[in-house]
Design a protein around this nucleic acid. Structure first.
Lengths: 342, 342
DNA sequence: GTGAAAGCGCTAACAC
DNA sequence: GTGTTAGCGCTTTCAC
């Protein structure tokens, strides 16, 4: 048995609603668009007709006539999509989708194939969407900046440019403060020699989390100011960085990693050296995802509100589109989740 | 500084292309739509004009005139979106998006708010999309079945109905065979008493993976045919199920869990009893996500090709829309990933 | 092979 | 408040 799709169960049009309600198409249009200048009885009649016919406005027609699409693009570079497994991106997508579910906007998720950057650019500039949300693994990469002249755009994370944000709108978290908080916590617990497994230094989270560590090291007047090794956000790189740190022969009683994956990787290296977490070395991650949640021992980490980040990006973009006032920069708070690794 | 959006940088229209190329709009339309009945020189002229003007067809106009939208909806029930953290869903979304990136179709991802089922239904039936992909955590829930009469629909996972698939199109994996393979492996490694932490019995993966264990138990003539406890796919439930299994006092030297999260949870319970993985008890999961990958020891598990599953769903739907022949049921193979827990 | 003409379903001035 | 009138940018018969 094959499920056959009906030829055409005649989708009702605005005109049919008008005829049934005994009014003009304009009036129906007004009702559909929530105009106030319609008398109560006419409104009721139209609504009844809409209900009876099960009328749904045709987006294409509406968009063509109004020159608004009611579509928001969520652009994800292909290289980022590959690492979609990263819970951070999944959460952002979820936040965006859930926020938009309660608006009139539709989410158009697109993978930007990097070998054909033009395809994406043209699609976005071709009047097919009302605005775009850009999420890149290489957070801070605002290479779509030229778009901003023809389309409202909101980024996840601050741009890489040192001098301000170049007019871009973005939503992010305060990585510096978040990492500083992690170290405050370690100091409170009596740790003296705190190392850091930093992330790539060509993206803001990598840079800022390291800066947070630096500020804290200075503030607490710690002796070892060069206990830094770098990773690329993968567990393996975290393990390697930790091995390098341990092989220095310098005493270390705590480590902060720029994300949970590397923190969990550090566990491996610590165990290899016959040491235990947290007795010998306390470990604190960043992000708060299940890598840390399911690790043994469960990881203390800096929580980043990623679902909310997605929702906020969508909110800012919608306001931008509707020309409501919005801040260019929105910083969401991080919070320390203390578990058993510290 | 505020980024101002230009008033209207005049998006080029098909008419402008026609004028520039010195042909009629119909001809430009033919070129844009890849019609063969256009002479080489005319084609070249039109393509040049398109290039020079940076012309992009307006989707709304095209859709209005052709009565095709080129939009595919990916519907995710709200309750499922909540557990978006489950890598399985993230991978499906990724697969769908990546497949569609190479087609003319656009991905419209929508969260179906369960308190307003009508909103979703009407949107889908209102001629706003050419087809729908339905992904539910409660896999097998084909409650959108009525839609299939007016719209091509493809589901992830087999329906719950016992009698065939009721005409629905779906893409899934062979959970029964996958689980059986896990047990073949354990038997090969000399395990004698294999228990199972089953999933919820109101969804196909839960049912089928347990059935796979049952078939294998029977086939190998194992003695303990009731070494079954149930969980709800979370790590905690896996730990609890394992505790119940261990407290029975029956010898167990291996356990298969219906997903990786529960398998990792089982680790906890096994350790609590002073036992080790895999020396005392071998553990095999199902899904193959980072829960198992980052666990200690890394988990042996049944790999499910989730990205490919998403891509295949999209492929089937596109063929369905284009009235090309497609199988109603597509079953993707699972494969056993042997790591260190078995 | 190419053009002319007629809409697709809706919104938005503008009259009344 | 409500109706009339033009399109929005494209596809699609149908002639030629």
């Amino acid at each position: 048995m094959t499920s056959e799709v009906d030829a055409d169960p005649t989708v009702p049009t605005l005109e049919m609603v008008a005829a049934r309600a005994g009014v003009s198409r304009s009036t129906v249009s007004r009702v559909v668009n929530g105009s106030t200048s319609v008398t109560a009885d006419v409104l009721a009649a139209v609504q009844a007709a809409i209900e009876e016919l099960n009328y749904v406005p045709n987006r294409a027609a509406r968009s063509l006539a109004s020159r608004r699409t009611q579509v928001i693009a969520l652009v994800i570079p292909e290289s980022t999509a590959m690492v979609f497994g990263d819970p951070f991106f999944a959460s952002i997508v979820q936040g965006v989708a859930m926020y938009l579910a309660n608006t009139e906007y539709t989410l158009n998720m697109m993978i930007a194939v990097e070998s054909r950057p033009d395809k994406t650019r043209r699609y976005l500039m071709g009047g097919n969407v009302d605005g775009a949300l850009i999420v890149s693994h290489h957070s801070g990469d605002h290479s779509y900046e030229h778009l901003e002249r023809s389309l409202p755009v909101v980024y996840a994370g601050r741009p890489l440019t040192a001098d301000g944000h170049g007019g871009s709108y973005f939503v992010g978290v305060d990585d510096i403060a978040g990492e500083r908080g992690a170290i405050d916590h370690l100091i409170e617990r009596g740790r003296k020699s705190i190392g850091v497994i930093a992330g790539p230094q060509d993206m803001p989270p990598g840079l800022d989390r390291l800066e947070g560590w630096r500020q804290a090291v200075r503030r607490y007047g710690m002796e070892n100011t060069d206990l830094v090794e770098y990773g690329d956000f993968t567990p393996e790189s975290g393990a390697e960085a930790m091995r390098r740190l341990l092989s220095r022969g310098v005493p270390i009683d705590a480590i902060v990693a720029a994300n949970d994956q590397m923190a969990v990787g550090a566990y491996t290296a610590i165990r290899e050296h016959g040491l235990t977490v947290p007795d010998d070395i306390a470990v604190v991650g960043f992000d708060d995802n299940y890598f840390g949640l399911t690790a043994t021992p469960p990881l203390t980490t800096v929580h980043q509100p990623s679902v909310e980040l997605g929702a906020t990006m969508a909110e800012v973009l919608v306001k931008l589109i509707q020309r409501e006032p919005v801040q260019q920069v929105t910083i969401l708070p991080t919070s320390l989740i203390v578990r058993q690794s510290s």
